[in-house]
Design a protein around this nucleic acid. Structure first.
Length: 861
RNA sequence: GGGCGCGUGGCUCAGCGGUAGAGCAUUCGCUUCACACGCGAGGGGUCGGUGGUUCGAUUCCACCCGCGCCCACCA
């Protein structure tokens, strides 16, 4: 019996297009889905029926590229699968418009520059075209421009995502600079502050001299840079000396000590003595520390405040003084020798030397000091050019400096053990990505610096009392009540104060900094889930089910999010982490804009169809970098086309229908039910690529072999009952296959579904193995064993025809096939009909024997 | 220096203890009444190298080579 659910509903008669086509399906179905609210989240669903996704908010200041299309498709496949399994899918979309990339884009786009000291100008209109000189604008004006440009970007992004077919609930979007994100970021921060988990500290901090902001350890990258070892002579008195090697001679005025390994016999006698810096005549101690490498350079190094992070370690552990020379803008700051502890044996000479360096950038100062050292005879030999890795801010253009400044930190070092165990609790897809996380957590060297000296970001919601002398009392910040959030301390006034008291003695001053963009995006689960705003929603979707993201930001976004959830809720933010790879260009390099190899996603979607592009994307296995391959998109498009045609064939003569009795039909369905079982299990494990591969292989076999074999029978050549069996089986199979393909090829499957079934395939129930074999009264293992041999028998006859270059329809008088195939039984009739074999038999032959009918000679006619 | 991943036909990739697979490309053939955005068939690989475990290894183990990514205190 065919179950009613697989019989076309009378109110939905089968309506087939004359010539099915893929063109225009995206627009057609997106409009319907939007109208019907197909992907709207059911906010009344209990937690156990919810599947929630912590969608990565794309950076709107950039443009979307194929890498986005790739990874977002993976997430969408999983979301659609879960929806079909009956889950209420919480699938929001965020926009990451917060932070430096947006600032930079706004500066270039409008030709402006933020000048926080300026007052707000409500009448400000940006220039039509950016001028040569940037226009200075106030911070509120600047933020307005950021908001304006990102709003436009977000529209373009949404259009592309819809065209791609992401089943996002578009009523649930957020922006990382939006009110909700600010409120969550500020509230979470204040709670950490109250617990003492957030703190501020004046300390040496990694500093980008162009952006003039602190940056975090996670935002560093190494770049190979040309440099040179300079051998520099320090005098020990009495004509003795010691030589050090350095790549940064311009920091000699910032030198506070020399250091060598405690076991280094060469320098043991110097420990505890002092030496004199060249040019500046400063007495600095020689100290011992195990980090000093006897093999490197001369085995003894100078410690400066601060040349690199090792200097910071030495400075801290050896309790050395600070003599900082690098200013926030990366130049050497003016210094008056003889004051502020800038002692020298010859202050006049030191001043004269230093004056030639002051206000120069580090690079220029380096060139200058080399000349001075040469003249003074302190440079030994010529500088030896080397290439060495130098730390950069990942978005920066010049090497990082280390500058002492007051910054906010979130404690991480105290929680390393908790973070490791949370990482083990999380289910990683693929599993090996967990190593990267543990690697990072174990390698942490300091707490997380979350303050940035920038403008377009979430402000720190604190003020400081201004003392009588005008200085700020940082130790006693004034905090707002959580109910007031979000606030901007540069415009809002703390309770108990008036606006007139801003920055006057006895009054208050706002914290000028904004939070690191990761300090906000580490809260995307809370922001998206309605934490503090909609506790009912929050309880239904948090902790979320999955965080999809790429592997390059495990150390930032993933780690930070785990940290924040641990600190605030004491839980994981989600149960699963689904890690995508990158899209590589054919040269095996990561595709990026700078390499000029990025293809516009919309052009791809238009050329290959969204389903075609999704097919390529979905074939990229979790975590695996995948080559950009338009050929695969063509294959995907062809698959979509094949679905249209195979469905049309199956549906074009859907009568008569009835009991599925024929072995081939029963075998095909039993095979299909096994596929459904495997597919479900694999999708549960996020192995979407394998499911697509398996489903596709089955489908092509269905088209090329099964449909060809039953064609004659379904046309009625063997009576109505045999035809009914074929017709019914085809419809059951089509229904299941459409649902298996639906997460991957949402447009073509919806189109075909609409020809004969009510509702959307995307809200139809995911097939179960039991569903598929229910119409044949359960799995038929014997029939399933016939399916493969039937395909083989078909192949043998086809092969012979091809080898003899006979037309497909040429008649074979007799075919003797290997006895191994003899189990075909009644199914042999279908093979016979499909291959035009009059007399089909099976015998113990090594090779198939196939005899053709000779064409009748003209004479005989 | 540490960690992780990868090395299978020209290309892109599956497979993973028992006689090598797919798609693309290539060659040959086919106006076959769902589809020429199609259909059928052929050729093409000592599964990076060397050892080991095993009756048997592309598949497990060890070492090595190559590629990629992540991390590292890079004076």
């Amino acid at each position: 019996m065919v179950r009613m659910s697989d019989v076309p509903n009378p109110t939905h008669p089968i309506v087939l297009p004359e010539k099915p086509a893929l063109e225009g399906l995206e627009a057609k179905w997106n409009a319907v889905w939007e109208r019907e609210g197909t992907f709207r989240f059911d906010a009344s669903a209990p937690r156990e029926r919810v599947f929630s996704v912590d969608t990565p908010p794309p950076t709107v200041s950039g443009s979307l590229h194929v890498g986005h299309v790739f990874s977002y498709t993976h997430t969408d496949v999983v979301a659609r699968f879960q929806r079909m399994r009956g889950k209420a899918v919480f699938y929001p979309m965020g926009w990451d418009d917060n932070g430096l990339p947006t600032e930079r884009r706004v500066q270039n786009y409008y030709g402006v520059r933020c000048e926080p000291s300026l007052p707000y100008d409500p009448a400000f209109v940006p220039p039509d075209k950016p001028g040569k000189q940037p226009v200075s604008v106030s911070r509120p004006n600047f933020i307005e421009l950021c908001n304006r440009l990102t709003a436009e970007d977000e529209k373009a992004f949404e259009h592309l995502w819809r065209h791609l077919g992401l089943s996002v609930d578009w009523t649930r979007t957020y922006a990382t600079i939006g009110r909700r994100a600010q409120r969550v970021s500020q509230a979470a921060f204040l709670r950490l502050l109250a617990k003492g988990t957030a703190y501020q500290l004046e300390a040496p901090t990694l500093w980008d001299v162009d952006f003039r902001t602190a940056v975090a350890q996670a935002e560093l990258e190494d770049r190979e840079q040309p440099g040179a070892y300079h051998r520099i002579r320090f005098a020990r008195g009495g004509g003795a000396y010691v030589d050090i090697e350095t790549t940064r001679p311009e920091l000699i005025p910032a030198c506070v000590a020399l250091v060598a390994h405690p076991d280094d016999e060469r320098y043991k006698p110097l420990f505890g003595t002092t030496v004199e810096t060249p040019l500046f005549g400063v007495q600095v101690p020689v100290r011992a520390h195990v980090l000093a490498d006897p093999e490197k350079g001369s085995g003894i190094a100078m410690i400066c405040t601060f040349g690199d992070v090792t200097d910071v370690t030495w400075w801290r552990e050896l309790a050395l003084p600070v003599r900082a020379v690098i200013a926030a803008n990366g130049t050497l700051r003016p210094i008056v020798w003889g004051s502020e502890g800038w002692a020298s044996g010859d202050a006049a000479r030191a001043q004269a030397a230093y004056d030639q360096l002051a206000t120069l950038s580090a690079a220029k100062a380096r060139a200058r000091i080399v000349e001075l050292l040469k003249e003074a005879g302190a440079l030994i030999g010529e500088p030896r050019p080397i290439t060495h890795p130098v730390k950069f801010y990942e978005k920066g253009d010049r090497p990082l400096e280390i500058v002492t400044s007051r910054q906010w930190f979130i404690k991480t070092m105290d929680f390393q053990a908790d973070l490791i165990s949370r990482g083990r609790e999380l289910r990683w897809h693929p599993e090996y990505m967990q190593h990267r996380y543990e690697n990072w957590v174990n390698g942490l060297t300091g707490d997380w610096c979350i303050s940035r000296q920038r403008f377009f970001g979430v402000p720190f919601p604190v003020w400081y009392p201004v003392r009588a002398d005008g200085s700020y009392d940082y130790a006693n910040p004034i905090v707002p009540d959580e109910s007031r959030l979000p606030i901007d301390p540069s415009t809002d006034v703390p309770d108990g104060y008036t606006a007139a008291q801003r920055e006057v003695p006895g009054g208050f001053a706002g914290d000028p900094d904004v939070m690191d963009t990761w300090a906000t995006s580490s809260l995307t689960p809370q922001i998206a889930s309605g934490w503090l705003e909609d506790e009912d929603l929050f309880s239904r979707v948090f902790p979320m089910d999955v965080r999809p993201q790429a592997h390059d930001i495990i150390r930032t976004w993933l780690f930070d999010t785990v940290l924040r959830a641990q600190l605030e809720h004491g839980t994981l933010p989600w149960r699963n982490a689904a890690i995508s790879g990158w899209v590589l260009d054919p040269d095996r390099k990561k595709m990026s804009k700078s390499k000029g190899n990025v293809v516009t996603p919309m052009a791809l979607l238009e050329e290959h169809g969204s389903d075609g592009v999704r097919y390529w994307a979905a074939s990229g296995r979790p975590g695996t970098d995948t080559a950009f391959d338009p050929a695969q998109m063509k294959v995907g498009r062809r698959l979509a086309m094949k679905l249209l045609n195979a469905a049309r064939f199956s549906l074009m003569q859907a009568e008569p229908r009835g009991a599925i009795t024929e072995p081939l039909d029963r075998g095909m369905l039993t095979r299909l039910s096994r596929l459904v079982a495997d597919a479900t299990e694999m999708l549960d494990a996020y192995d979407y690529a394998r499911v697509l591969e398996r489903t596709e292989a089955f489908f092509w076999g269905f088209c090329d072999d099964y449909l060809e074999m039953v064609k004659s029978r379904r046309y009625g050549d063997f009576g109505p009952e045999a035809a009914a069996s074929a017709n019914s089986a085809m419809l059951v199979a089509l229904s299941a296959m459409l649902r298996l393909f639906a997460p991957y090829l949402p447009f073509v499957t919806e189109e075909v579904w609409s020809w004969w079934r009510p509702g959307s395939v995307h809200t139809a129930a995911w097939p179960t193995p039991e569903d598929v074999v229910a119409p044949i009264g359960g799995a038929d293992a014997a029939a399933a064993d016939v399916y493969g041999p039937a395909q083989e028998a078909l192949a043998l006859v086809r092969q012979r025809k091809a080898l003899e270059k006979r037309p497909v329809k040429s008649v074979v008088t007799r075919a003797v096939l290997p006895a191994a195939l003899s189990g075909l039984g009644p199914a042999a009739r279908d093979v016979q009909a499909a291959t035009h074999v009059r007399d089909l038999s099976f015998a113990a032959v090594a090779e198939a024997v196939i005899e053709f009918e000779e064409p009748a000679s003209p004479a005989a006619r």
